[in-house]
C-alpha cells in the first residue's frame, strides 16, 4: 500500500495536502439512504469540524473515514472516498490497517475495563508491538495531558477515572498507535465545561501531529477549534418520509460562521433552527 503514497506528489507542493478526498459519497443502510451528496477535501494538520442538527448523517460520514461502518450489518458506502489517493472502500484495503492509521474517539468515553496502562498499551499490543511499551504509554498519556494525573496509578482500573479523564485516556489510547488521523465523534458531549475546555486545548495542541475530524453538536466548539467546517442537514423525502442527510456547505470555519453562502447554513449558525 505504501507505494501508492507517491501519487500524492503529483499535487502542487505548496497546496495543503488532502488527506481525504470525498466525492459524491452516499451511505445506505439496507435500502435506506442515510447520507447523500457529500463532497469534501480534508487537509492534513487541520481540524475539520462537522456540524448540523441531529440525524443529519455527520456521525455516519465520520464512521466512513475509518471503515467503522463495516461493523453495521447492511451498511453500504458508494461514491469516492480516497485516503492519500487510495480508495478506502477498495476490496484490497484491509480495514484493520486503516483503523491503525485512522484512530477514533467516541461520543461516550469507552475505556476498556482494564488498567490505565493496559488501555493505552492495547493498540500497540494488538499490532504485535511488545517492546518499549512503558515509554510509549508515558508519551501517549503526556500528549493527552493526562500523565500527571495518573502517573502514580497506572495499574489502577480505568473505570475509576472521571468522565473527562476517561475521554483523555481514550485519546491517549488512540494516539498510542501513532495514527495519521484522529476521528472524534462528539468527544465532549458527555463532559462538563472544564473537561471540554481541556479536550479542546488538547486538540489544538496535537493538530501539529495529526489531522483531526470532529463531529460536534456544539457550534461554539466548532468555531473555537476548527479550521474548516462542514455543515450537514437532513431533508425529508415527501413520499417516503425518510430523512436523508446531506452536506450543505463546506468552507473555512470563519467563512461558515461569518459569511455563509447557503441560507440553511445561515439559519443554523445564527441559531434560527437546530
Amino acid at each position: 500500500m505504501s507505494d501508492h503514497a507517491d501519487d500524492v506528489t503529483a499535487e502542487p507542493a505548496d497546496a495543503p495536502r488532502a488527506v481525504f478526498h470525498v466525492e459524491d459519497l452516499r451511505v445506505y443502510y439496507g435500502d435506506f439512504r442515510a447520507v447523500t451528496d457529500v463532497s469534501m477535501d480534508v487537509h492534513d494538520n487541520e481540524i475539520t469540524a462537522m456540524i448540523g442538527p441531529s440525524g443529519c448523517g455527520k456521525s455516519t460520514v465520520l464512521r466512513c473515514f475509518n471503515r467503522m461502518n463495516d461493523l453495521i450489518p447492511g451498511a453500504r458506502v458508494e461514491g469516492r472516498l480516497d485516503y492519500h489517493s487510495i480508495p478506502l472502500y477498495d476490496h484490497k484495503v484491509d480495514p484493520v490497517e486503516v483503523r491503525r492509521r485512522i484512530g477514533m474517539v467516541f461520543q461516550k468515553p469507552n475505556p476498556f475495563p482494564k488498567s490505565i496502562y493496559d488501555n493505552v498499551a492495547y493498540g500497540p499490543r494488538v499490532a504485535g508491538n511488545k517492546k518499549g511499551l512503558d515509554d510509549l504509554v508515558e508519551q501517549s498519556l503526556r500528549k493527552a495531558a493526562l500523565w500527571d494525573e495518573v502517573k502514580d496509578r497506572l495499574k489502577n482500573s480505568a473505570m475509576g477515572l472521571s468522565g473527562g479523564q476517561q475521554q483523555r485516556l481514550c485519546i491517549a489510547r488512540a494516539i498510542a498507535v501513532s495514527p495519521d488521523v484522529l476521528l472524534m465523534d462528539e468527544p465532549c458531549s458527555a463532559l462538563d465545561p472544564i473537561a471540554t475546555a481541556l479536550i479542546e486545548e488538547l486538540m489544538v495542541e496535537i493538530k501539529e501531529d495529526y489531522t483531526i475530524i470532529i463531529v460536534t453538536h456544539n457550534m461554539q466548539q466548532a468555531a473555537r477549534v476548527s479550521d474548516r467546517t462542514a455543515f450537514f442537514t437532513a431533508e425529508v423525502d415527501p413520499n417516503t418520509e425518510q430523512r436523508t442527510g446531506l452536506l450543505v456547505e463546506y468552507a473555512p470555519t470563519d467563512a461558515i460562521f461569518s459569511n455563509p453562502q447557503d441560507e440553511r447554513t445561515e439559519n443554523y449558525v445564527t441559531g434560527r433552527f437546530g
Binding site: 492495547y122 494488538v126 498507535v177
Partner: peptide, 10 residues
C-alpha cells in the same frame, strides 16, 4: 467496547 477495540486497529 467492541468499537473501542476496532478503533485502535484490533
Amino acid at each position: 467496547l467492541r468499537e473501542g477495540g476496532y478503533g485502535v486497529g484490533a
